[in-house]
Each structure stands twice: as structure tokens, then as C-alpha cells.
Design a protein around this nucleic acid. Sequence first.
DNA 1: GACACCCATGTAATCGTTTCCATGGAATCG
DNA 2: CGATTCCATGGAAACGATTACATGGGTGTC
Lengths: 337, 337
Amino acid sequence: MRSVTIRNVADLAGVSVATASRVLSGHPSTSEVARSAVNNAATALGFRPNAQARSLRKTSTQTIGLVLPDVRNPFFADLAHAVEQRARDFKYLTLFGNANEDAEQQDRYFDIMLTQRVDGLIAAPQGNLADLQAVLDSGVPTVFVDRVISDTTVPSVTPDNVTGVQEAVRHLTNLGHRRIGYIAGPQSTSTGRERLAAFQSALADTNADDDADLIFFGDFQAASGAAGAHHLLELPHPPTALLAADSLMSIGAIGVCNERGLAIGSDLAFVAYDDIEAFSLINPALTVIAHDVNAMGRLAVDLLTQVIAGETPESVILPSRLIVRGSTPSLPGGRTP
Amino acid sequence: MRSVTIRNVADLAGVSVATASRVLSGHPSTSEVARSAVNNAATALGFRPNAQARSLRKTSTQTIGLVLPDVRNPFFADLAHAVEQRARDFKYLTLFGNANEDAEQQDRYFDIMLTQRVDGLIAAPQGNLADLQAVLDSGVPTVFVDRVISDTTVPSVTPDNVTGVQEAVRHLTNLGHRRIGYIAGPQSTSTGRERLAAFQSALADTNADDDADLIFFGDFQAASGAAGAHHLLELPHPPTALLAADSLMSIGAIGVCNERGLAIGSDLAFVAYDDIEAFSLINPALTVIAHDVNAMGRLAVDLLTQVIAGETPESVILPSRLIVRGSTPSLPGGRTP
DNA sequence: GACACCCATGTAATCGTTTCCATGGAATCG
DNA sequence: CGATTCCATGGAAACGATTACATGGGTGTC
């Protein structure tokens, strides 16, 4: 099953490999007769150029790497889709790596991406500068998306992690909530840190309680959202509203509320992060902090092409906003103090 | 920014490239002194072998291709995750392509995969034999997952598309439903065809209506589920129960029910396909036809490794079953005849 | 008609790695 | 001790494409 090479094509067409290569890659200096001979031979043999050989000779692989924490998180699935579609516009193939919210798996993927000599890299990174050192040292054009690593000059496309949380806290306190439970993301991520800081600072501007107890640290996965809901709802003074820092933890937390027979919207107010389609189906629909995933993915690719072209684009911060739905009704019933 | 090659490593270590290569790829015939010299030089220079050059020389790329219809479908996101994790066990890198439920994009990805000389290919294919011809001709080891193309000998891992649907129809008719609306998948997919056939044949065993009107043809995307719900609910004789052939169409359909103020579980019974986490959060939780996504992904990789090894493994059909939850209560209220 | 120019083509070098083959020294065996 | 085997090593040939350089024929200009 030896595959057919450009040499076979050239032989069948009766020309040299150089001419065959020129025809196949659209070089202008080719005659009509050579063109048709080579093209016919290529289709007759089912020739398919070997990408390895090509990228070995050229400097570029026409491939970008995308390292995300978890495809099963609908936010990242949407982001992956957006990046991939945009990359296609630039004729880039997207090499996708799923870090499983794990710094070690992430680093292994970075390693693979570099080994594969991707032309550029888009990542929602985890951990600190040390984990990224290999990537930064390699000099491969890189753009961060959603999350960033501090103390680097890597351009990024991130959501505004402050405004949405601020609006959510104000919204809840305006409704009369004074005990708001917060299920935080891991502090090894910029989104985890920034959203928590925004929550705490927004809280300080209100007369709501700021007990340390009301903050639970999760890891952006569903199970930790469930653990957080358990912990918070079993406090001596349980919260009357919950806010979770991503969609998977929201899913986990809501599952626990259902199990405990707590009706969201009446027994407990709930605000989720990310505007997942399924969240609008839950009855009552969830109030969410939303941002534009598609724009984020597109912009990340656009920035990356600029970096590859040698430019140094400005980082972009995309707005986020609160979408109020039924899970935070104006008159909280049940166990509100 | 020229990257460091094995020649630089060899020079620094004071050995030939051949020896350096042998040390770095763990060939037994190497001396202790050469090993340490080369390893030191490699780490000192931050050497990272060029995957293109390596795969050019070797026959294998240690890469498998995965072509799926849509990552944004949680079922396929889970499947992608399962495949990727299992592939890692075999030291394979997964090259991921998202066909967007579009035969043309799918074929472009197949083309890319072949150009990249993947060692094997896992696909949930769409369309007919002609679309796949290039892949089959190339002789690249292939396994189908979830969906198949008829008249091929490609091994596959598929769900049992009959039992779950049968159980769902029986369950609904036992509850007294006689008008069951079905939102079908595209007939260009095996899952779309088999599930529809199972629905029709199960219906024939009951005294429920089998009007052609009650079947709407969608495309496995959310928007078509919404269109299907609109169509079915506006029939002169609307159905009292809905069954949708995948999760995205279910999401679209449920959104429409909510908009129209139809309470699922009381005004309308609903059965969804695929046991998505979010479906158990909807209140009442959805009755679903479930199957084991993780097993499907793992088995697909296992089968592929067998094909790569030259064996011809048997295809596997994984069981599916009905999980009854609140969306199909025993006493349908409202508009039941 | 001579000269310059352009264009299609072929030869061969090149990309970075693996691996076949030859070599020479050490070890083993009768 | 001589012959054989073994092993670490280096030189060089592959893998399959692109492309710099050389070449020769055709065209245009004066």
C-alpha cells in the first residue's frame, strides 16, 4: 500500500518532478500542455501530496494548535467550533488538544504542538509562567483566549470578568438577598481569580454578608459544583442565592438543588456563568452572565494571524453582561430572612 | 529563530547524528557515555525533534484522525473526549475535524486527514459510499462510530437504534398517548434512518396513529428541532407526546414548547435522545433514550488499533435503553384526547 | 541578423530525521 | 591464541516534497 508520490505523477505525465511540483502548486511558469498532462496524471493516480514532506521543506505547516481545558464544557465546545471555523477561512488546520483542566496534560499538549511545528498556538492556559516557559521560549506565535497568564506579553482575547459579576451581585442584593453563596473557579486560572475578586469587591459595596464561609472553591468541573452546593446549603446560615463561576459547576450545583427538593427561583435564587442553550430551557430559565463566545473565537484567530504576520496586536476584552431570567425572581420566597 | 536540530545536539555532544538519533529514540546499542552526553546536550539546547521529518522517514505519524459532525452537540463532545483520552493510552495524537453536519466539510476533512497521513481514522460519517470513496481507496485503517455507511466492510461501534426507540414508543402508548410526534434525523445518516424505521415499526405494533404528518424531518441541529416542534404543535390534531432523534433537536423543540407556554410533563410528554447532563436538570427531568458514550469512544479506538495491526475486528453494537423521568408522567394531563 | 529578454523545463540541493551498511575494537569461545 | 560474535559508532542513503540555479528555445527590438 505504498502511497503515490509526485515522482509517479511526473513519470506518468512524462515531465520532471520539478515541473510536476510547479503545476500542482500553481506556479505561473508552466505550459498548458504540461499542466494538463500533470493534472491528468495526478487525478488518474489519485495523488495526494504528503503534508509532512511539504512542511519539512517549507517553513510553515498551515496548522494552528488549540489547547482548551475541556471540550465537554459547552462554553469551550462553542469556542472550539468558533476558532476552527475562523481558522478555515485562513486555510489553517486546527490541531485540537483537550487538557482536561489539568496542568500536566496541558503541558503535554503544548509539547506535542511544538513538536508538530504548528504555525501558531491559541490556548486558554492554566497555571503559571513556568508551565508556559517552553512555549514562550520556542517563539511560536501565541494568543491566549478566555484565560491569561500574568507577566507575559502574549496578546489575548478575554471576557470582562468584572462587569457581569458586579451586575449579578447588585441584582441579587437589590432583590433583598444578603447571603449570596459563591462557587468559585480554581485560583490557578485568571478567570477564577478575577471573577472571585470582582465578587468580593462588588459585595463590599453592599450591605450583604461577606463571610468566608459563603465562598467555595471548585475546579470548573460539574462534580465540584455539586460539592459546593452541598457545602453552602448545609451551612448553619445557608445562602438564599447562589452564583457559580462557570457552566459545568452550575450544572452540578443545580443537580444538587433538585435532589434536595429546593426549587430554583422560589426557594433559592441562582445565577450561572455562560449563556448555555440548555440554561434557557430549565424551568424557570436561568439568569446568566453572558458573553459572546463566537466573537471570542474569531478574534483569537484574527489576532493570531496578526502575530504570525509579525505584528503585535492589542489585547481585546469583550463585554459581558447579566441576562435576567426566571431563576432570580423579584420576590424571593421561602427561606429568605 | 531557526530551531535546534539533531545535528546541533550531535555536535555539542561530540558524536554523530546517527548516535544522537539512537540515544534519543532509545535504541539499545548506545554506550553510557554517549547517552549522557547526548541527553545533556539535548536538554541544554532545548532540542525538540521535528515531527514532520520523523514521520517522513518512518511510515507512521502516531496520529489518528477523528471526524465528527458537530462538537457543539454534547453527545459528540463527550465522544470526542472519550476517543482522545483512549487514544492517549496508545500514544496517539488525535487530529480533530468538525464537519458541521455538512457532507462537503466532512469530505474536506477526510482529505486533510489523508494528506496528513494519519495512521488511522475514526468517523461518524454522513452521506453515501461515493463521499467516502477517497478514504476507502486510500486504504487507511478506518473505524466508524455512532453512524455507518452501508455496503462497506469498515468495522463500526454503533448504538442499538432500535431497542431504545421501541421502549419509548411502548412507554408512551402504555401511558395512553395515541398521537406521538417524531422529529427525525436526516435520512443521509444511518442513525437518522434506523431510528425512524424503529419508530415506525414500533408504532405499527400499537394502536397509535401513524399519520405521515406526525413525522418531521430535521437535521440534528437545534434550529430544526424548533422548526419541528412548531410544525407538529400547529397541526389540526397536534400530538400529545414528542420524541426527538438527538439532543440538539430536543433542545430546540423544548425551547419552542417553553415559548408557547406548553408545560412539559403536564401539557405534553417529551422523550429526548442522548442522556445529556443538562436534561436531568430540566424540571421535570427529561425521559431519555440513553447509551454509553464513553464505551463507544473507547471501543472505537480499540477497534482502530486492531485494524492498524492488520486484524479485522467484529463490529460492536452497544445497548441503548429508556430512562424514564418526569417528562413522561403516568397520567398525562391537559390536551390528551 | 544579433542581442537581450523571458519563460518553461530539468538537475540537484535541501528540509531533519531514521536506518542500512561498513568498520573497528572488545569480548567470547573452542 | 586465532576465529567468531557482538556492539557502539559514523557515513551516507533514504523519506517526498519545494526551489535555486542552469539551460535552451522562442520572441521582440534595433
